[in-house]
Structure formats: C-alpha cells, structure tokens
Amino acid sequence: MEVRTIKVFTTVDNINLHTQVVDMSMTYGQQFGPTYLDGADVTKIKPHNSHEGKTFYVLPNDDTLRVEAFEYYHTTDPSFLGRYMSALNHTKKWKYPQVNGLTSIKWADNNCYLATALLTLQQIELKFNPPALQDAYYRARAGEAANFCALILAYCNKTVGELGDVRETMSYLFQHANLDSCKRVLNVVCKTCGQQQTTLKGVEAVMYMGTLSYEQFKKGVQIPCTCGKQATKYLVQQESPFVMMSAPPAQYELKHGTFTCASEYTGNYQCGHYKHITSKETLYCIDGALLTKSSEYKGPITDVFYKENSYTTTIK
C-alpha cells in the first residue's frame, strides 16, 4: 500500500517557510505537534488534498525554529505562539472599519479597549522592536488589523473576551517599542525636605499616572512627601515624541487643539466601556464603527496623549 502524501510549508514567522512532505494517514499533531492554519487549530486533523502548498504555523520545537521565533517575536515564552494563534482565530472574524481616516474595530468580545489602543497607536510616533509587531502594525494602518490585535493580546497575556485596560495595554506595548531616546527629568520640591531631581528613561519617561493635564504637570502637581507634608512635583525636561497622561476616570474637559487623542471610560472596574476622542479640525468621538463630532467635550476621561518633541522648564 502506497503512502499518500502532500507537500506543505511549516513556519513560526510566515517569513521562513520549511518544506514538509506530510503523510495523509496521520494527523498534523502526530507529525508536527500543535499546528495552526489561519489561526485555526488543526492539530487533530489529517492532511487533505486542499492543504497542498498551504502554510501551517507550528510551535518552535527545534533550534532553527526557536531562533526564527525569537528573532521575529522577541520572546522565548513557549506558550506565546499558541496564544497568538488562538487569538487570531477570533480577531480574523472582527470587522476593521476605516473611521475618520483611522483603522478602528467594530465592537465584539469586549474589544473596546483594543480599538482605543489601536486608534491611539496610529496617532503617536512609535516604532516597535519585534519585527512581528512592526509588520502587523503597518498592515493594521492599511486596514488589516487582525494579526496586530492578536499579537497585542498575546504580548499582554490576554484572551479574547476578557476586559482590558488601555493604560495597561499601552504599557505592555511600550515595553516592546523603541523608547531608548526618551528621557524625563522631574523635580520634587518640599518646604521641609528641599528639592530632589529624578531622571527617568524609556517607558517611565512617557507615562504618568495622577493627572490628565500635561500643562498642569509642567506647572506642578501636589504629591505627598515622605515627611508627610505636601510637596510639588513638576516637569523639568521632556525628550520624547509623545507623552501619555493618565488618571482614574473623572469628568474632564478636553479643549480642541490642546491634545492629540484621549480615552474615555464609562462604567466601573468590573464592567465598563471605552471610547476614543481625537482632536482634528474639530473633536471626534470614535466608538467602534461609530463616529460623532463636537466642538467641545466633557466626560469621564482616563488617558490623554500629547505630541511632544523637546521641553525644558522655565521655572527657576
């Protein structure tokens, strides 16, 4: 009895394709271990004539594949690729409408935090270190965002349907971005203890939790000093293409032309909904596939993004 075979390709990165001759009487799992086709788990399936010449994702289970996976995804987590594939199996079914010149995501599976993050990423200057993220990001900007969303979920250790947080998501993504040249110098002034300067680099240099107003941050924000008295913390120097200011959701007025974009969060910790506000020729609110415009805006804002380049204080 002759062994019926077909020729397929296996890959971990969709760049390096490895030619395989597979036995049609055995499952993919018996031949390769966990195997995925377009995100779908085909591990328990036997090869079919229609699979001839198709590319299958496999887990990096030998040295060659491990090197290829690390170079593309910059992670050695053995569960990463499987999590990416199972997320992709959902995100490829989502709709990605162009809204006001940006790629958004039609609401499904509690994905409003991903839509808000995706919209924000198209408006701030950011370059990702893992080629996987950078490639998928370019495709997302062009309207094909399924891979990018699935990668975000995998890097953030999230599953489809789980509630997510924009600030946490951005923080994970910033860790995989090139923020080497970003720098922030802060000064804390206390009447009792004097003053202390701190220099922050990388992710810490672009994120701040405690106030939404970048102007206020430049002037000074009140913080408790270690001595128990009130101290003032203010920005001395900022070198970065953008800054992200966050605070627990509270009524906040966004003035046209003073910011790049913002995240609105309605609801409580267990259950809520994100919308995205962007400042173009007027203010726009993007909620999944829905767009509304207004000249002014007041609502429960939790993150505001500002364009920056270089700032030095005039406070002496």
Rank of each mutant, 00 (worst) to 15 (best):
C156N: 00
V304P: 03
I286C: 09
P248Y: 00
D23I: 09
D109V: 09
K229E: 14
I105W: 01
K93Y: 05
V67G: 12
K92H: 08
F70Y: 13
Q30N: 00
S79R: 11
I286K: 00
C227E: 00
N49T: 12
Q251E: 13
Y113M: 08
K106D: 15
L173W: 02
T198K: 12
R167N: 01
L163Q: 07
S104Q: 11
T313Y: 15
V21W: 14
K275H: 04
N49I: 13
E204K: 12
C182L: 04
N187Q: 11
A140M: 13
Q230R: 11
C193T: 06
H256K: 09
L126E: 03
G257S: 01
K229N: 14
T312Q: 13
T159A: 14
Y73K: 00
Y28I: 05
C112H: 09
D287R: 08
K293M: 12
L254H: 00
S79N: 14
C182K: 05
V22H: 04
A289W: 06
D180Y: 10
F128I: 03
Y269A: 07
F217S: 01
E71L: 12
L254G: 04
P130A: 12
V12K: 07
H90D: 05
S86A: 14
Q195A: 14
Y208P: 02
M244Q: 05
K293D: 00
R4C: 14
F148E: 01
Q31K: 12
T19M: 11
C261Y: 05
D13W: 06
H18M: 08
S246A: 05
P241I: 00
V3C: 12
T192C: 06
A177Q: 03
Y252M: 07
A117E: 05
I124P: 06
C261G: 00
T266Y: 11
T211R: 04
M170V: 07
I124H: 03
L59I: 14
K293L: 04
L65A: 10
N16K: 15
C261F: 03
T313R: 14
T19K: 13
E68P: 01
C261I: 00
L200S: 10
Y137W: 07
L126P: 04
C149N: 00
T120N: 06
D62K: 12
K106G: 13
P249R: 03
D135C: 05
Y137L: 12
M170G: 04
Y155T: 01
V189Q: 12
T43C: 15
Q196S: 14
L17I: 15
Y214H: 09
T302V: 10
T198D: 07
K298V: 15
L173R: 08
K233V: 14
T302Q: 08
Y214I: 08
F70H: 07
G161R: 06
Y252F: 10
V203C: 09
H273N: 02
N268W: 04
L17Y: 07
C227K: 01
F242C: 02
H48E: 13
N111A: 01
A250N: 09
D23P: 12
L179N: 00
K7S: 13
P78D: 15
G161W: 08
V22K: 01
V188W: 02
Y113P: 01
T35Q: 04
L119K: 08
M26K: 15
Q123L: 05
M209S: 08
I105T: 04
H176S: 04
G272W: 08
V58T: 12
L151T: 04
Y113C: 04
D303I: 02
I301E: 01
T76K: 10
G33E: 08
T199F: 04
T198V: 14
P241Y: 10
N187K: 15
Y57L: 07
A177V: 11
R139A: 14
Y57F: 13
V3M: 11
L291N: 03
A108S: 12
D180W: 00
A145N: 03
T258G: 07
R184E: 03
L151I: 06
Y234L: 04
T35A: 12
L65P: 08
S246D: 05
I45F: 15
K93V: 07
A177C: 15
D180T: 11
T278P: 01
G164F: 01
L291G: 11
F217A: 05
L153A: 00
Y36G: 04
R184D: 00
Q237G: 05
K233Y: 04
I105Y: 03
I301D: 08
G82P: 14
V188G: 02
A146H: 11
G33I: 08
Y36P: 08
K7I: 12
L59W: 15
E144R: 07
C271N: 09
F217T: 07
K229C: 09
L235P: 01
L88Q: 07
D41A: 13
V3K: 13
T226Y: 10
L290N: 15
Q195W: 14
S295H: 14
D23M: 09
T76P: 10
A132W: 03
Y72V: 05
G194W: 04
G53K: 12
A146Y: 05
R83E: 04
A289N: 11
N49F: 12
L179R: 05
K307Y: 03
E253N: 09
P249N: 06
A69P: 03
S263W: 01
T55R: 10
Y84N: 05
F259S: 02
N178K: 11
L88H: 09
H90N: 08
R4E: 15
S50C: 12
G164A: 02
G161N: 08
L37C: 11
V160R: 01
L17G: 03
G143R: 03
S171L: 13
G299L: 01
A87H: 00
V189L: 08
E162W: 03
T10A: 07
F80Q: 00
Q134F: 07
T76C: 14
T27Y: 10
C190S: 05
V304Y: 00
Y265I: 02
L65T: 14
K158C: 00
T76S: 14
Y73Q: 10
Y96F: 11
C261W: 03
N16E: 10
R139P: 04
G161D: 04
K316L: 15
E162L: 02
Y73H: 06
T282S: 12
Y306L: 09
F148P: 04
G29S: 09
F242R: 05
Q216M: 09
G210V: 02
N89M: 15
A262I: 07
D38E: 14
E144K: 13
V21C: 14
D303N: 02
G164Y: 02
Q222A: 09
A140Q: 04
A69K: 01
L59M: 15
T312G: 07
M244D: 00
E264H: 00
N89Y: 15
T192H: 01
C190H: 06
P78M: 14
V99R: 12
K280L: 15
K106I: 09
K93E: 12
L290Q: 11
M245I: 12
T199I: 09
G220K: 02
V8R: 05
I15P: 00
L290C: 12
Y96C: 10
H74T: 04
R141F: 11
N89S: 14
Y36T: 03
Y72W: 11
M207T: 09
A145I: 05
K46W: 14
N129P: 06
T103C: 08
L65V: 13
I45K: 13
V42H: 12
G164N: 04
V166T: 06
A145G: 08
K106M: 08
N61G: 14
K158E: 03
G82N: 14
I301F: 00
T103A: 08
F80G: 04
D180M: 02
G82K: 10
G194M: 03
T313P: 06
Q237S: 14
T5V: 13
N14V: 03
Q216L: 05
D62T: 11
C156F: 04
A289F: 01
D38V: 11
S263V: 09
I105F: 01
T43S: 14
Q31R: 11
V185A: 03
F259H: 06
R141H: 09
C190R: 02
G299I: 08
Q196T: 14
T64D: 15
A150E: 09
Y138H: 13
G101H: 02
F305N: 08
A205Y: 00
S86E: 15
V22P: 11
S213C: 06
K92N: 08
N100S: 11
T11Q: 07
Y138Q: 15
S294C: 15
V160P: 07
T120I: 11
C182Q: 05
L81Y: 10
R4A: 14
T76A: 15
D23G: 12
K275P: 00
F128N: 03
E253W: 12
E296H: 15
G194N: 11
G29M: 14
E125K: 04
E168W: 03
T76W: 10
F242W: 09
V185T: 09
Y214K: 02
L283E: 07
F242A: 02
C190F: 05
A69E: 08
V99H: 12
N157W: 04
K158D: 08
G299T: 02
L59A: 11
K233I: 13
K46R: 13
D63V: 09
N129A: 09
F32L: 13
K233D: 00
T266L: 04
Y84A: 04
G39T: 13
